[in-house]
Amino acid sequence: MEEILKVEKLNVSFAQSLKKNRKQVLTDVSLSMKKGEILGLAGESGSGKTTIAKAILGMIPIDQGTITCNARTPQMVFQDPYSSLNPAKTVSWILQEPLRMKTKETAAGRVEKVKSVLHQIGLEENLMNRKPSELSGGQRQRICIGTALMSEPELLIADEPVSALDVTIQAQVLQLLKSIHEKKQLAILFISHDLRTMYQFCDRIVILRNGQIVEEGKPSTLYASPKEEYTRLLLQSAGIR
C-alpha cells in the first residue's frame, strides 16, 4: 500500500539555556506509515514522542534527516483538552476556523459543515454556541477531533489524546477515533505512554526510549514476545506481562 509518511534518520536537538551544548532529543529516528494505518508511538515522558509529532508537522526545526509527508493537511489533537480550545470563542466559531482559512465556503455553508461534523463526533447541535469552559473534558476532546476533521486530513497525529480524561470517557473517545479511522481511511499516529490502550487500538507499535527507537512490531507479537529488555519492562510496569 501507498506510504503517506516516511521519516528517515531524523535528528533533533534543542538549545539549552545557560549551557553551550545542545540537548539531543531524537537520534536517527526512522519510521513510516501506510495510508489508513494506526501507528502507535509508545514511550515515557522525555522519550521524544511529542518532538517527533511536532517535527512531522514542521512546528520545530530539525537538524538532520528527511521527513516526507504525502498526506493531505495533517492535523494534530493535543493532550490537554483544556488548553487546546480557544476559551474566548464558541464551539461553532472554533470548528469553522479551518474552513475560513482553507475554503471559500459561505457562512451558511460553514454552519452546515459544523453541524455534520458535530454529528460525526457524537455531539448535539445545541453545543454549537457554548464556550469551551461550559464543556466536559470528553466533549472538549471531541471538539478537538472535530476541528482536525474540518481540514479533511489524511493523517491525524494524536498526542496522548485521552490521558487527561476519565477512564470511561477515554474508552468513548478511543471508540470515536477508531470509527472515524474506519470510515475515512484516516491514518492515525497515536502517541501514548499507555501500552494497555494501545494494544487494541494500534496496527503497529513503535517503542521509543531517550529519542531512539528500541523496537517495533505488531501489538500481538510485540506484547507476546518482546525482544528488548526495555519493552519487557514497560509491559511489566503496565501489568501486562
Binding site: L57, M59, Q75, M76, S83, S84, L85, N86, P98, K102
Partner: peptide
C-alpha cells in the same frame, strides 16, 4: 490552541 490555530 495557538499551535492548533497555526496548524489550521
Amino acid at each position: 490552541y495557538v499551535e492548533s490555530a497555526k496548524l489550521m
